[in-house]
Computed example of a mutant assay.
Amino acid sequence: MFTGIVQATCEVTDIYKKDGVTTLEVAIPDQLRANLATGASVANNGVCLTVTQIANDRVFFDVMEETARLTNLADLQTGSWVNIERSLTFGSEIGGHILSGHIHTTAEVIELSQTDEHYDMRLKVDPKWMHYILYKGFIGVNGCSLTVGQVDGDSFWLHLIPETLRLTNLDKAGAGSRLNIEIDSQTQAIVDTVERVLAARFGDQ
């Protein structure tokens, strides 16, 4: 499990592709490698991946075909930067909201509005996910715990503060970029439960 508080952006230093699996080689700084071992879970752009090898400051992760298909990890190239978060440990402060590291869908950046006072980003997703994306609700975007802004049809806005832009790779996302989306699990559970109750009560009317 993760908190959605990105700890660093790290460079993808190499990508190895084989049948059915792609291996990412990521340069991770010393402080984030402390006590890191093979088999540990680390979020890369919000995707929970298992450490398969550690060599000096390089950490290796295998990405299966299905994971690549459903996320923006397939878009990575050597030199790309990924948001990194180590898995939650007992006693850690939860500054964001609980994330599982399992991506539901990707969103396309369709509009950016940047001035000296604000940095706003509009994202478009498959309409079937929009009833889980609520104004002022939580959402995971590339592994970042963020608050949803205005919701409009099949899109929603994010209002990003300078600290978020400094600590994450969201400032590198331009129009057309794909970002990983994890729906807030509590919101999903509540919406699905309410829909089932209403369907059971009024479905035959």
Rank of each mutant, 00 (worst) to 15 (best):
I110Y: 04
L158E: 10
A175K: 15
G95R: 04
E117S: 14
G149S: 08
V151C: 14
E182S: 08
W129M: 13
T115H: 06
N180T: 10
G91S: 03
T105W: 03
E108K: 11
H97F: 09
I139L: 09
D154Q: 06
E108A: 12
K172A: 12
A173T: 07
H104C: 10
S100K: 13
L170A: 03
G96F: 14
I110W: 00
H102E: 12
G101Y: 12
G153H: 13
F90N: 06
L123S: 11
D184W: 07
V109Y: 03
L134G: 07
I133V: 15
L158D: 08
G140L: 05
T164M: 02
H97D: 08
T168F: 04
N142H: 00
H118W: 06
I139T: 05
T168W: 00
L146R: 06
I103Q: 10
S100T: 12
V151M: 10
S177R: 05
V141I: 15
T106S: 04
G95L: 11
G153L: 12
V125H: 09
L179A: 10
G137C: 04
R166N: 11
P127H: 13
L165C: 09
L165D: 04
I94C: 07
G153N: 14
H118Q: 13
I181C: 11
I94V: 15
F156E: 04
L123P: 13
E93I: 12
S92T: 06
H159T: 14
G176I: 07
N169T: 02
V125G: 03
G140H: 01
E108Y: 06
I181E: 05
C144Y: 05
G176S: 03
E108R: 13
D116Q: 13
I181Y: 09
H131D: 15
G149M: 09
Q114I: 08
V148F: 04
S92W: 01
Q114N: 12
E111K: 13
T147I: 09
S145M: 03
I161D: 01
T164P: 01
G91R: 00
G143P: 03
L123M: 08
T164K: 01
G95H: 07
L165K: 11
S100I: 00
H104G: 06
I133H: 02
G149W: 01
S177T: 15
W129Y: 15
E108L: 09
R178K: 14
F138P: 10
Q150R: 10
I103V: 15
V125C: 07
S113A: 08
V125E: 05
E117R: 14
T164H: 01
V151Y: 13
H131G: 00
T105D: 05
T115E: 04
Y135S: 13
G174K: 01
K124W: 00
Y132F: 15
I181G: 11
V141D: 01
P127Y: 11
N169D: 05
L123E: 09
I183K: 06
A173Y: 00
T147F: 03
I103P: 13
P127C: 05
D126H: 14
L160M: 14
H97G: 09
K172E: 03
Y135C: 04
K124N: 06
A107N: 07
V109L: 06
V141Q: 00
D154M: 07
V151N: 10
G96W: 11
S155R: 12
L123R: 05
E117G: 00
H131N: 15
H104Q: 08
W129A: 14
Y135H: 13
F156Y: 14
G137H: 04
Q150N: 12
